[in-house]
Amino acid sequence: MTSKILIIYTGGTIGMAPSDAGYKPQSHFADLVKTSLNSTVYKTLAPFDMIELDTLIDSANIQLHHWTDLAKLISDHYDDYAGFVILHGTDTMAYTASALSFMLNGLDKPVILTGSQIPLIQPRSDATNNLLNAVAFAREPRIHEVCVLFDNQLLRGNRATKVHTSALRAFDSPSCKPIGHAGIDIEYRANTALPAKPKDFIIPTLTPSVSQLVLYPGISNAVIDAALLDPTVKGVVMSSFGAGNPPDSNEHLMASLATASARGVIIVNITLCHAGEVIQGAYATGETLNALGIIAGADMTAEAAFTKLTVLLSSGMSQEAIRSQLTQSICGELSNA
């Protein structure tokens, strides 16, 4: 079996260079890697091929079609490589990792996303360490999922979230332990990783039909209406207080939730808390949501809930099937399903 890795460079801080307008993605990243690493370190990457996107992306500009493009790129080259490394900006890396996990269901090899907080060409860059560790984990045949590798931690992709703007440990996985660690040795924790299962890639054309509604004290009717009552919206990820509690004294919010649910909008309720899960019905305010048919998102991250709902709504499934899938763990995104 080949040990060759495919590295896909999408842009992001790892390959950026200073400009008069701030850091910008630079092309010809393969040449940059070769000139930046000493020959001994560079050889540890081999064997590998690299594909660079024609249009590089600052990840703040990521769009739904980029996720489909990346999933198709991996699918098209799937049988030719032992694993895949995607070099990506940190701002939306967790969204991309989550989206890919739902489209590339049934992986039997690793897809590892990484990047850096400091560009490769800059002093004290974390890029080299992240790249080398990502490649090492991409050659681990016991990994069967999409992961985020950052600052020596290997995290499940659909459990990762960016937690710091400038620390080198920019990502965390608050409700799921890391599945690997790069220290003196590359440590893989088989008991926390997903088992292999039959390949079932679903790579639809993703449509922008999901909104996010973040609740806060004094939320305006206009914000509520934009998220729930827009006729193009088919799904909503609502971030509520504590264990999934809305301000049920807000009559406009509750009426809008009822109206949206009645017209077939699928609403998933997640918590604003950094960790823990939604338990609708633990308080009377949450029980109101159960009566409206709103789905408790358990301990899904905002990134996982948004991308899971987007992929399911774009896949042509029936509403009943989508609602069922949202309460089940497709690829490790839920702890208790």
Rank of each mutant, 00 (worst) to 15 (best):
residue 283 Y to F: 14
residue 191 N to K: 12
residue 331 C to G: 06
residue 283 Y to G: 03
residue 302 A to S: 14
residue 160 A to V: 02
residue 322 I to E: 07
residue 72 K to A: 05
residue 52 E to D: 08
residue 257 L to P: 11
residue 151 D to V: 00
residue 21 A to M: 09
residue 209 S to N: 14
residue 200 D to V: 00
residue 213 L to A: 07
residue 70 L to M: 15
residue 105 N to Q: 13
residue 58 D to I: 07
residue 22 G to N: 07
residue 60 A to R: 15
residue 320 E to T: 15
residue 266 I to C: 05
residue 235 G to N: 04
residue 230 D to S: 15
residue 185 D to Y: 10
residue 44 T to Y: 10
residue 298 A to W: 04
residue 163 V to Y: 07
residue 158 N to D: 08
residue 327 T to A: 00
residue 321 A to V: 12
residue 112 I to Y: 09
residue 131 L to T: 03
residue 12 G to Q: 04
residue 37 L to T: 00
residue 17 A to S: 15
residue 13 T to K: 01
residue 1 M to R: 13
residue 261 S to D: 06
residue 77 H to T: 08
residue 111 V to T: 09
residue 214 V to L: 14
residue 22 G to S: 09
residue 41 V to Y: 13
residue 131 L to S: 00
residue 253 L to W: 04
residue 38 N to P: 04
residue 136 A to I: 07
residue 272 L to M: 14
residue 241 F to N: 05
residue 124 R to S: 13
residue 43 K to S: 15
residue 134 A to P: 06
residue 8 I to T: 08
residue 137 F to V: 06
residue 234 K to D: 09
residue 303 E to Y: 14
residue 138 A to L: 07
residue 240 S to A: 15
residue 11 G to V: 06
residue 21 A to K: 14
residue 165 T to S: 11
residue 169 R to F: 00
residue 156 R to N: 01
residue 51 I to K: 15
residue 135 V to R: 03
residue 165 T to Y: 05
residue 263 R to G: 08
residue 164 H to K: 05
residue 139 R to A: 01
residue 111 V to S: 01
residue 307 T to Y: 05
residue 244 G to S: 01
residue 143 I to Q: 04
residue 127 A to S: 10
residue 10 T to P: 04
residue 243 A to N: 08
residue 156 R to G: 01
residue 291 A to S: 13
residue 55 T to M: 05
residue 93 M to G: 08
residue 180 G to E: 10
residue 255 A to Y: 01
residue 200 D to I: 00
residue 234 K to M: 05
residue 227 A to C: 13
residue 191 N to G: 03
residue 113 L to V: 04
residue 19 S to P: 06
residue 219 I to F: 10
residue 276 G to C: 04
residue 132 L to I: 04
residue 253 L to R: 05
residue 234 K to H: 12
residue 80 D to I: 00
residue 104 L to N: 09
residue 320 E to A: 15
residue 159 R to C: 00
residue 201 F to A: 06
residue 254 M to C: 02
residue 18 P to G: 02
residue 220 S to M: 00
residue 95 Y to H: 07
residue 121 I to D: 02
residue 284 A to Y: 11
residue 294 I to Y: 02
residue 180 G to V: 10
residue 179 I to D: 01
residue 146 V to S: 04
residue 208 P to G: 12
residue 83 G to H: 03
residue 46 A to T: 11
residue 191 N to T: 12
residue 139 R to N: 03
residue 38 N to H: 10
residue 44 T to L: 13
residue 104 L to Q: 09
residue 73 L to G: 12
residue 287 E to K: 14
residue 331 C to Y: 02
residue 217 P to V: 00
residue 172 D to S: 15
residue 21 A to Y: 12
residue 101 S to C: 03
residue 184 I to G: 08
residue 51 I to M: 14
residue 278 V to Q: 02
residue 96 T to W: 11
residue 70 L to F: 12
residue 245 N to D: 15
residue 73 L to Q: 15
residue 134 A to N: 07
residue 282 A to S: 04
residue 334 L to P: 09
residue 20 D to N: 09
residue 217 P to C: 02
residue 91 D to W: 08
residue 198 P to T: 12
residue 245 N to W: 09
residue 122 Q to P: 01
residue 230 D to N: 15
residue 86 I to E: 06
residue 151 D to S: 11
residue 36 S to Y: 02
residue 301 T to V: 10
residue 252 H to S: 11
residue 239 S to I: 14
residue 279 I to Y: 10
residue 71 A to Q: 10
